[in-house]
Design a protein around this nucleic acid. Structure first.
Lengths: 202, 202
DNA sequence: TAGTTTCGCAACGACACCGTATCGTATGAT
DNA sequence: ATCATACGATACGGTGTCGTTGCGAAACTA
């Protein structure tokens, strides 16, 4: 251990290997493997590393998955107070785009998976990857209610559930047969929903 | 083989065992096991039978799961032309109730699972358990459009996605923390959605 | 009764995976 | 150069599961 702040003697940890491990983990989950199903052997093989390399960094699978998922802080689009419609479309379209890429599809797969078997993992994931998105969407809807564009009696939680649930339905349950969600799906959902959300004056 | 139509000599197949096997399969899936994760060993243990008893009836796991899921033809409520709202609430409430029981929760779990690994199984399930429900809901919405209660330009597929997706969101993704969907969830969803679906004359 | 079929249980060889240990080689610092 | 640490590959004992086989007992027919 050097006292001058330089790196200790010995071979340094390979950042390439660490990234490959994290990527392999997310890929396998994005491809459909549940956390229970995911195996360290498969991650190691996919990443092109030895199992010991994984175990030198993470004590167990749950720790690895937790760290891998923590990298998924998908940046929310910057929507500095445009119209409610545009902001909702932007947020909802992030979900659609996530579904198109195997790595970010993890978000959807984990959100819809059984949380009972890995409650701590799920909670951590929920705080980092799901709640920020919901908070942003909620803020937009509440802004719409405050400005009078949306009904004063709008159930904001239900509205969010409708937007999110519909996109999930289309990207996950209704995607059998390999059909991709169309690029205008987010706007179609938002427009349909806003018909009921808007106040009579709008 | 007797020519008089009486049963052949030998111990008869146990219907109790067969039912126990099917029930165990549905229970394990309802509890969160994916088709991939499900093991014959676990089914046998849960059902209190020997593995050979399972293999005497089914060649492999996929065949067993297929037959087990085929028993899930949940009867649709008889809704002989009441109001669109009432009919939609009735159908949507079947989903909510399904989510409360471990055995019928299979429908939701399978519908939201990755279909790529078991395409034939999924397709068979889709035809027997999902499509009849969608057809019934579609008929109600189309009736509403035909009578003028709903907008002539209503996107019926999107409307269905909104109703179904929202209920799924609440019963599956939003159910972390053990919160049960409230008994009035179906009517709240339908009422919120109908605000936008209804035609201006309604 | 004998004969037949099914039952649950146990065992089997094969395979996959876990977490650990070992090893020769690679990659750095000194 | 030596020393230290990390690497991938391999092996290991253990666990779990698969699909199959064998067996004594159970449940039936004739």
């Amino acid at each position: 251990m050097s006292v001058t702040g330089t790196r200790p003697a010995g071979r340094p940890r390979s950042e390439r290997a660490e990234k490959a491990i994290v990527d392999a983990t997310l890929d396998l989950i994005g491809e459909g493997a549940s956390v229970s199903e995911l195996s360290i052997e498969a991650v190691a093989a996919r990443a092109g590393v030895g199992k010991t390399t994984i175990y030198r960094r993470w004590a167990n699978k749950e720790e690895l998955v937790g760290d891998a998922l923590a990298t998924l802080k998908a940046p929310l689009p910057v929507v500095a107070g445009r119209t409610v419609r545009e902001d909702l479309v932007a947020y909802l379209d992030v979900m659609r785009q996530d579904s198109l890429h195997v790595r970010t599809r993890c978000i959807m797969n984990i959100a819809m998976s059984d949380q009972e078997r890995h409650p701590r993992l799920y909670e951590r994931f929920h705080q980092t990857a799901i709640e920020p998105r919901r908070a942003a969407m909620r803020a937009v809807l509440e802004r719409g209610v405050a400005t009078g564009e949306l009904r004063a009696d709008l159930d904001v939680e239900l509205a969010m559930g409708m937007l999110t649930g519909t996109m999930l339905w289309y990207t996950k349950a209704a995607s059998h047969g390999g059909a991709l969600p169309s690029p205008d799906l987010a706007s179609r959902i938002v427009d349909e929903a806003l018909r009921g959300f808007r106040s009579a004056q709008a």
